[in-house]
Deep mutational scan, measured.
Amino acid sequence: TGEEYIAVGDFTAQQVGDLTFKKGEILLAIEKKPDGWWIAKDAKGNEGLVPRTYLEPYS
């Protein structure tokens, strides 16, 4: 299990392996990579890379 984050903006996948999401979606951070791209999972179970700058902790 990971930590929940809320998307603060829309993001469209730029390449294969990225995860597209919309502002307000809750994402589960699976792995926090030091380069600023995290592996996350959305509510539908889709998994991919997301930019850290689009996420804020969800409580």
Rank of each mutant, 00 (worst) to 15 (best):
T1I: 13
T1P: 12
G2W: 15
E3I: 11
E3G: 10
E3A: 10
E4S: 13
E4H: 14
Y5Q: 01
Y5L: 04
Y5G: 00
Y5P: 00
A7Q: 01
V8P: 01
V8Q: 07
V8T: 11
V8S: 07
G9I: 14
G9R: 15
G9H: 15
G9L: 15
G9Y: 15
D10A: 07
D10H: 06
F11I: 04
T12H: 11
T12D: 11
T12C: 11
A13T: 05
A13G: 12
A13F: 03
Q15F: 10
Q15R: 15
V16A: 13
V16T: 11
D18H: 15
T20S: 15
F21R: 00
K22E: 06
K22W: 08
K22I: 07
K23M: 08
K23G: 04
K23Q: 08
K23Y: 07
K23S: 07
K23D: 03
G24F: 05
G24A: 03
G24L: 02
E25P: 00
E25S: 08
E25L: 03
I26G: 01
I26L: 09
L27P: 00
L27W: 01
L28E: 07
L28Q: 09
A29P: 06
A29V: 15
A29D: 00
I30M: 09
I30H: 03
K32Y: 08
K33N: 12
K33Q: 09
P34D: 14
D35R: 03
D35I: 03
G36W: 03
W37S: 05
W38M: 08
W38N: 00
I39K: 09
I39Y: 12
A40H: 02
K41V: 11
K41R: 15
D42Y: 00
D42T: 05
A43W: 10
A43H: 10
A43P: 08
A43G: 10
A43S: 14
K44G: 09
K44R: 12
G45D: 05
G45A: 04
G45T: 01
G45K: 03
G45F: 03
N46Y: 08
N46I: 08
N46G: 07
E47G: 05
E47L: 14
E47T: 14
G48V: 03
L49M: 11
P51K: 08
P51R: 07
P51L: 10
R52K: 14
R52P: 15
R52E: 15
R52G: 15
T53M: 12
T53K: 14
T53G: 12
Y54N: 06
L55F: 05
L55D: 02
E56C: 12
E56Q: 12
E56A: 12
E56P: 02
Y58Q: 06
Y58H: 10
Y58L: 11
Y58P: 04
S59I: 14
S59N: 14
S59H: 14
